Simulated scan of single mutants.
Amino acid sequence: MLANVATAAPKLNELSRPALKDSTILRSTVSCPDCPERNCYKCTLGHNNTILANTGGLAYIRSIVGYQLPVPAKKVRKCTVQFPAFTTPLQAPINVTVSRALSSDWNEDTVSGETAPDSGDVFNTVQVPAYNNMEALDVTQACKAASASGEFSIYLGSQFGRFEIWSKDSGNPSILHTYYK
């Protein structure tokens, strides 16, 4: 007589931490009256109450968000990020994209379209239905590629359309959930 023995997968530990920094990065060929020299690439938006993304027309706007892993990257099994609600409900579905910033060496006071780190390829795309908020986004790939000090950054964008969410400066930072052994 054979008995099936099921063994449960070992439970992972979890630690959660708020974002350390976030900023909107403007890249546009049109004039931005509120930016130095009216040049959108020179805008520093690291202390605004919201971050946003927009694709379409003449503007390419993404947000960059920086985190600190609470454990060494080699222990990470999974990472997710939960962003706060959209500032206004989405009127139509949108695809939110996530890519890794190739450096976390940026500062909210000075980061702009001219100084922002380069971006890796999009590694996660999540469709958000109209009148919904984002689910937790899987950012495991970025966590595992964190620097030796545990810092990493991601870009949040949209395939088509625009969204705006609360930033850490509003008191509503995104939260990194790290699952590890």
Results as ranks from 00 to 15, higher is better:
40 C>N: 09
142 A>T: 02
47 H>V: 09
113 G>F: 02
155 Y>Q: 07
118 D>S: 15
167 S>T: 10
33 P>H: 12
53 A>T: 06
71 V>K: 12
169 D>C: 02
100 R>T: 12
2 L>M: 11
154 I>V: 14
178 T>I: 06
80 T>I: 03
86 F>C: 09
22 D>Y: 13
95 N>K: 14
144 K>P: 01
143 C>M: 10
68 Q>P: 06
169 D>E: 13
44 T>L: 10
114 E>C: 06
66 G>A: 15
177 H>W: 02
89 P>A: 01
52 L>E: 08
135 E>K: 12
88 T>S: 15
154 I>N: 00
76 V>K: 10
13 N>P: 03
175 I>F: 01
128 V>F: 02
17 R>Y: 05
93 P>Y: 04
87 T>G: 13
6 A>C: 06
115 T>G: 10
9 A>C: 09
138 D>N: 10
84 P>N: 04
46 G>D: 06
5 V>G: 03
49 N>F: 06
148 A>S: 14
23 S>A: 15
25 I>E: 10
58 L>S: 06
51 I>V: 15
130 A>S: 13
66 G>K: 14
58 L>T: 14
66 G>W: 04
143 C>R: 04
17 R>S: 09
141 Q>M: 05
24 T>C: 06
84 P>S: 11
18 P>M: 14
83 F>Q: 01
131 Y>G: 01
181 K>D: 15
92 A>H: 09
127 Q>V: 11
115 T>Q: 09
46 G>Y: 00
